[in-house]
Nucleic acid binder design. Structure first.
Lengths: 218, 218
DNA sequence: GCGTAATGCTACCCGCCAGTAGGTAGGCGG
DNA sequence: CCGCCTACCTACTGGCGGGTAGCATTACGC
């Protein structure tokens, strides 16, 4: 055996900073999504990224900074994915339909991003929890606006049984929960998932069991 | 100043084991709900409980054991609270209504229990996540049974647009999410919360914006 | 070639925290 | 008043993991 064979197994060497940063962020999202913020170790992240630990610190700062960078990148991805799918000039139900489809497509494709944002981010006390809560609140406001616009279009104001924000909160939560459920049922398409939710919230059980069906109006 | 004044501030002494265990569990739930499993320290728990650390280990075992004990106690409490409220011989919508009310009453009264069960338990990998997921799955199955019974009663089978389990998952998720939302709006009564959700899932937006209202059939 | 800056590493420090060793004190039967 | 058990404590250890000091190596401009 010559010493030539002894070269270590092809660890990519001397890459530009931007590329390394992306590798690190990818690894971090993966590890954070598996273990959560506190149980994740910088050593494991550096390992998965194929990079030594000091690199992470020189490029992206402390563990908290790194987590923040992950959260912000994935949150941006998610919001952009949804906004790319929605068309503002459609009627409310069709807007909701497209938003939901984009959302479920995103969750299926980037399940680790979703896990970090949904499950792990809230468990880190302080600034991040606030940031995530804020983002979620904005999503709820958005849906609430949709709901209220659907309502006022028909001339219905606020009543005791009809709070836009409360309804939007349940709807968003229902969508999120169905996303979690779908993680364990990967064979169900985003269209079907969105369809279930549309039928539930737009028609309600009462109409569903009468045989009515909501369908996207071409 | 006599030495009499120097006695340490009345830390209750020589209590029977059962009482101490309850104190410890109460403290643990409180601390876990604030910081999550990993960020919570046994020192803080022992401090809050008014007990030294070795007591916890002799009475309740390791940190993981302690967390398990918390989870199981609170889960039992929650399930019993809900089952106490529900009456099996009522029609499906009224069963759901009573279950929801009990649920929201519980969350309002024991918000720390709810936080531990809902937010923190999933972040501990391994056996607990599975345990919680199982419990949640049972809840979903229960609701699914309710939904399907409401459906078959009307002669509706499974269709592409109507999956009992998927619908139940979104419903349970919506209920949980609304519970979280309600934690920030403590002035809203459990009845109102349950009412919103009933109107959403039983009637749907389409009927709601037409002015229809679901009310408990007393 | 040759400085210089960017890329990248090994090897360490140190604080925090789960878990424990070993001892004290109060009640209780005799 | 004497053993003895149970309740309870102070004070420690061992290691895990965030963070860093200091050095090696390559690219690149001139």
């Amino acid at each position: 055996m010559s010493e030539e064979d002894q070269r270590p197994p092809e660890r990519a060497r001397r890459l530009p900073r931007a590329v390394r940063e992306r590798q690190i962020l990818d690894a971090a999202v993966q590890v954070f999504s598996r273990h959560g913020y506190h149980a994740a170790s910088m050593d494991e992240i550096s390992d998965v990224a194929g990079v030594s630990k000091p690199m992470i610190y020189t490029y992206l700062g402390s563990k908290e900074d790194l987590f923040g960078a992950c959260i912000r990148r994935e949150a941006t991805r998610l919001l952009e994915a949804i906004q790319a799918g929605v068309q503002p000039d459609l009627p409310p139900d069709m807007q909701l339909w497209h938003g939901l489809r984009s959302f479920y497509r995103f969750v299926a494709e980037y399940r680790e991003s979703w896990t970090v944002l949904h499950r792990q981010a809230l468990t880190v006390g302080g600034a991040f929890a606030a940031e995530i809560t804020d983002m979620r609140a904005r999503a709820i406001q958005l849906v609430a606006a949709l709901v209220v616009s659907a309502g006022t279009r028909k001339g219905v104001g606020e009543q005791a049984e009809f709070s836009g924000e409360g309804l939007a909160a349940s709807l968003v939560g229902g969508a999120e929960s169905l996303a979690d459920w779908a993680l364990d049922h990967p064979d169900i398409s985003d269209g079907v998932l969105a369809s279930w939710l549309m039928n539930l919230v737009w028609l309600g059980f009462n109409d569903l069991i009468e045989g009515e069906v909501w369908k996207p109006s071409e």
